[in-house]
Design a binder for these strands. Structure first.
Lengths: 225, 225
DNA sequence: AATATCATTCTTGTATACAGAAATGTTGAC
DNA sequence: GTCAACATTTCTGTATACAAGAATGATATT
C-alpha cells in the first residue's frame, strides 16, 4: 500500500541514523540525499519531516534538518518513561492476557533462554523484542501498545548499549521469567513492579550505560548549529 | 522562528479539526485547502503530513488524507495512558518539585477555585491546563513532560465533554487540592494515586463521557473510506 | 592585521508542471 | 432497469522552477 518513495526513504534514513551513519549534529542536505536516492527533493523533504516528527532529527527553519542524538539525560528520561509504560502493560496484561498470548509470551521467554544458552546475542535481541511486543498487545490497550512500540523502537540502539555488558543478558532473561510468572498468576502489581525495574536505568545499569555512552556519542565531531 | 506557511496552516487546520469543522472520515482536499489558505499545494501537503504524524488524520496512499475522530474505545485507552503519565509526573514531582514550582502549582489551584466560584467555565479550563502543565514540568523529566503535553493537547476537546457535566467541575477542583497537598507533603504514592483516578475514565465519569460522546461523534455522516 | 560591510553563492521554502493511479460518468449489452 | 466495460476527469505523488533568507567570502577601512 504505502509504496511511496517518501516512505521508503524515510525508513532507509531512519536505519542509517540509528546505525550511526550520520554523526550528532550533522546536517542532512536535501540535494545530497536526492542524488543518493535518485529522486527529487520533494520526497526527501517529506521523509525528513517525518523523521523530525518522530524525534530523530530536528528541523531549524531556513537552516536545514540536523541529526540529534539524545543526550545522556534525555536517554535516562526516555528509559524512565519506557519503564512506566511497560509496567502499565504488565499491570493490564496480568488481568487481560488471553491463553494464546500467554503461550506466545512463554514461547518468547523460552526462545530468549535458548538464545542465551547458545550465546547467540542477535537472536536474543530478536526474541527479547518479541517478548515485549507480545506484552504490549496483551495489555488490551491498543493505544498504549502503539506508544510503547514507538518508544521501544526509538530506544533500540541504546538497549544494545546497556545489555552488551557481561552477565546482563542472563539477568535480563531471569527477569523475563519472573514477569511471565507474575502475569500467569494474575499478580498485576508484581508484574508492574518487575517490569519497571527491568527497564529502568538505575544502579548498575546506570553505570553500564554511562560507560558505553561516551563511545557511542563521539562518532563524529558535533557540528555547529 | 518557525514562520513557515506550512506550520501556520498546520496549526489552523489542527484547531479547525478539534473545533469540529470537519466531520469524521471527511477528506481534506489539497487543492481546496490551497485556495482556502491562498498558498500552493506544497505547504498544505506538509501540514497534512504533520497532522497525520500527530494522529489527527490518516493518510491513505494515492487516496488522500481523512479526518479520524478517535473511537470511544480509543478515547478511553488514551485517557488511561494519560492517567498513568500524570500519575508518574505526580510521583516524581513529589520528590523533585522546587519551591517556585510549588508556588505556581498552588496559584493555579487557587485560580481554579476562583474560576469555579465565579462559574467561569472557560477560565477554569485555562487554569486547569496551567495546573497540569506545571505538574508535568515539576516531574523533572523533560521527555515525560513533553509526551504528557502532547497527549493532554490531543485529549483537550474530550476533557470538555467530560467536565461539562454538572458538579464535575467542583469535584475536579477538590482533586487538585488533594494532589497539591500530597506533593507538598512529598507523599509520592498518594500524589500518583490521586492523579491516576483524577484522569482515568471510570465509574461515573465513564457514563458522563458516554452520554456526551454520541453528540460529539455524529456531527457529519461518516464518509466511505 | 583585524573587523565590518557588502556582494555572491548556496540552500531552504514555495509555486508550478507533469505523470500515473483512482474515482467518476457514460455508453452499451443483457 | 441493471450492470459491466471503457473513456474521461480528478487528484495524488514527483519533478522542476523560482524567490528569498542564510552562509560564505571578498574588499575596504581602521
Amino acid at each position: 500500500m504505502a509504496l511511496r518513495n517518501a516512505d521508503r526513504i524515510r525508513e532507509e534514513l531512519e536505519q542509517a541514523i540509528m546505525a550511526g551513519e550520520f554523526g550528532d549534529g550533522e546536517r542532512l542536505d536535501e540535494m545530497t540525499l536526492s542524488t543518493r536516492f535518485s529522486v527529487s527533493r520533494t520526497p526527501v523533504r517529506e521523509a525528513l519531516h517525518a523523521l523530525a516528527a518522530s524525534g530523530l532529527v530536528e528541523t531549524i527553519p531556513r537552516r536545514g534538518v540536523f541529526v540529534r542524538y539524545p543526550s545522556f539525560i534525555k536517554l535516562i528520561e526516555m528509559f524512565d518513561v519506557m519503564a512506566e509504560l511497560e509496567a502499565m502493560c504488565g499491570r493490564l496484561a496480568a488481568r487481560r492476557i488471553t491463553d494464546e498470548e500467554l503461550d506466545r509470551l512463554e514461547a518468547a521467554a523460552i526462545a530468549c533462554q535458548k538464545a542465551e544458552e547458545k550465546g547467540d546475542t542477535d537472536e536474543y535481541y530478536r526474541e527479547n523484542e518479541r517478548f515485549h511486543h507480545v506484552l504490549y498487545h496483551a495489555s488490551g490497550n491498543s493505544f498504549l501498545a502503539q506508544e510503547a512500540s514507538k518508544l521501544h523502537k526509538r530506544l533500540k540502539p541504546f538497549r544494545r548499549l546497556q545489555l552488551r555488558v557481561r552477565g546482563r543478558l542472563g539477568q535480563s532473561m531471569q527477569e523475563h521469567r519472573e514477569v511471565q510468572d507474575a502475569i500467569q498468576r494474575g499478580d498485576a502489581e508484581r508484574a508492574a513492579r518487575t517490569l519497571r525495574s527491568h527497564i529502568a536505568i538505575q544502579g548498575e545499569n546506570l553505570n553500564d550505560l554511562m560507560a558505553n555512552f561516551a563511545k557511542y556519542h563521539s562518532r563524529v565531531p558535533r557540528q555547529k548549529t
